[in-house]
């Protein structure tokens, strides 16, 4: 039996990631829908806050609001990210290839992470213009980028695992939300805390921010590791 040239896991990762990016570049399906959704959620937030004129309150609430935006938008994107894999059995085609199946997880995680980061790059300036313009910006504001990155990685990680599960279920959109939101809760809690502290330059910043970041990073490490280990079972089922 002739031995075919072996493809390394790294090459498989790059090929699969390239496929997702190329597909998205062509259809712009996820980015368009997530982008529009972001805008709509901002409009809803604006309407909800019409009567709350207190600028100080907005500053304190903005971290939480921003994370609510990220969670809603990511749910939309995660649902989409596996729809086209199932559409005509494409994922089955990938499963027939001799490759380490956790590579599928890592490539999908990376694709979802990149799409979410693109949306955040658009959402952050919009958010500032709509809600924070004219308010005093604290020098500690750049610290908010820490929880933003760590939180987005965690959302992409656990979200990719759950989206793989829910794509094969009835009522997949609602089910993804139901499984995703409680599981993401600790990460969300830590990230909202750290983000709010940074935006408000709260005196408690230096006490609590490191703890919140450590917990968020710990969550990412544990959850992504577990998802990576369990992914073969899920994607093969």
């Amino acid at each position: 039996m002739t031995n075919k040239p072996r493809v390394s896991a790294w090459q498989h990762y790059r090929i699969l990631l390239g496929k997702d990016l190329r597909r998205e570049f062509r259809t712009r399906e996820m980015l368009t829908s997530m982008g529009i959704y972001t805008l709509l959620v901002l409009v809803i937030f604006g309407t909800a806050l019409v009567q709350a004129a207190e600028k100080v309150d907005i500053l304190q609430m903005s971290g939480g609001l921003f994370w609510a935006l990220i969670v809603f938008t990511s749910l939309l994107g995660l649902n989409r990210s596996f729809a086209y894999e199932k559409e005509d059995g494409a994922l089955e085609g990938v499963l027939l290839v001799p490759l380490d199946r956790s590579v599928i997880f890592l490539s999908k995680l990376t694709a979802n992470l990149l799409f979410l980061l693109v949306i955040e790059v658009i959402a952050i300036p919009l958010f500032f213009v709509f809600f924070l313009s004219g308010l005093p910006l604290q020098p500690t504001l750049p610290l908010a980028l820490g929880p933003l990155l760590v939180g987005t990685i965690g959302i992409a990680g656990i979200g990719t695992l759950l989206a793989t599960i829910t794509i094969n279920t009835r009522g997949k959109d609602v089910l993804l939300a139901l499984l995703f939101v409680p599981l993401i809760f600790p990460l969300l809690y830590a990230c909202v805390s750290a983000t709010t502290l940074a935006i408000c330059a709260s005196p408690a910043l230096y006490d609590i921010y490191p703890a919140a970041m450590a917990l968020a990073i710990g969550y990412d490490v544990v959850m992504i590791l577990v998802s990576w280990l369990l992914y073969d079972f899920v994607v093969s089922a």
Partner: peptide, 14 residues
């Protein structure tokens, strides 16, 4: 091994 199924196992947008 290869599989030809009633599903084409293709990405429709590629």
């Amino acid at each position: 091994i290869g599989l030809i199924s009633h599903k084409p196992l293709l990405y429709l947008d590629l």
